[in-house]
């Protein structure tokens, strides 16, 4: 519904009037220096950083290994529904686990509040910060936040060295034009609001597990 917004032009006019007085250039040196250490081994760095972020990262060589790992994680969870991103690769993967749990696919809507876990893909893995990049295409917004456990199935080819590469790829791919949401997830939900003591599982997943397949 269009809303009258008389202040729009007023604010823009104030900004333009204010900017007519230029600011003096800052005396500091230009920032041409290298800010972050270059990343030489993205896989090794991802493993280190994801461990520091209190994530679980398991390497597998093939699909069967990934299914075995997924099955183990599902077996460790309380009974309940699993929410999955509706993607052919995840349909194959979950079939191999032979799980008897009720499944809900993202094509059926948002995850239910009582979901025990989500299984999704990722857009990229970021070595610099040990992070997983997801968009709305990875099962929607709720997929990575509603259930107490989030399991990500990814391939080593999805590893990028740093945030700059991940964000640059995201921009150039046009994914943000098509998606209303993206998130760089760097660990499980947490808080330190009480005496700076770290507690996992504040509002989102207590557990974030990445199954990283190195072979085809």
């Amino acid at each position: 519904m269009p809303v009258e917004n008389p202040s729009r032009e007023l604010i823009l006019e104030r900004i333009r009037a204010g900017l007519r007085t230029p600011v003096a250039p800052h005396p500091g040196p230009r920032s041409d220096a290298v800010i972050f250490e270059p990343i030489r081994n993205p896989l090794e760095r991802f493993q280190q950083e994801s461990t520091a972020n209190l994530m679980e990262c398991t390497l597998t060589s093939d699909l069967a290994g990934a299914a075995l790992q997924l099955g183990k994680i599902l077996d460790s969870l309380p009974a309940g529904e699993i929410f999955l991103q509706d993607d052919p690769s995840l349909r194959r993967l979950i079939e191999l686990t032979k799980t008897q749990r009720p499944l809900r696919w993202s094509s059926e809507g948002a995850p239910r509040e009582a979901s025990e876990a989500t299984v999704s893909l990722a857009e990229a893995l970021i070595a610099q910060t040990g992070s997983v990049l997801v968009t709305a295409e990875c099962g929607g917004r709720g997929a990575s936040i509603v259930a107490p456990c989030h399991i990500v199935y990814a391939h080593a080819a999805q590893l990028v060295p740093d945030l700059e590469t991940a964000l640059g790829n995201l921009f150039r791919s046009g994914k943000l034009v098509r998606n209303s949401f993206a998130c760089v997830i760097s660990g499980s939900s947490r808080t330190a609001d009480i005496e700076k003591i770290l507690v996992q599982g504040a509002h989102g997943p207590r557990r974030l597990a990445v199954i990283l397949q190195t072979g085809r």
Partner: peptide
């Protein structure tokens, strides 16, 4: 802010739920 390398959720949001998205608000 906290001494972390990056916060746990660094989120980007640009609109309401788009066609084909599983969830998200109707209005933004």
């Amino acid at each position: 802010g906290t001494g972390q390398a990056i916060t746990t959720y660094s989120t980007l949001i640009g609109g309401p739920r788009q066609a084909g998205e599983a969830d998200g608000p109707d209005e933004f």
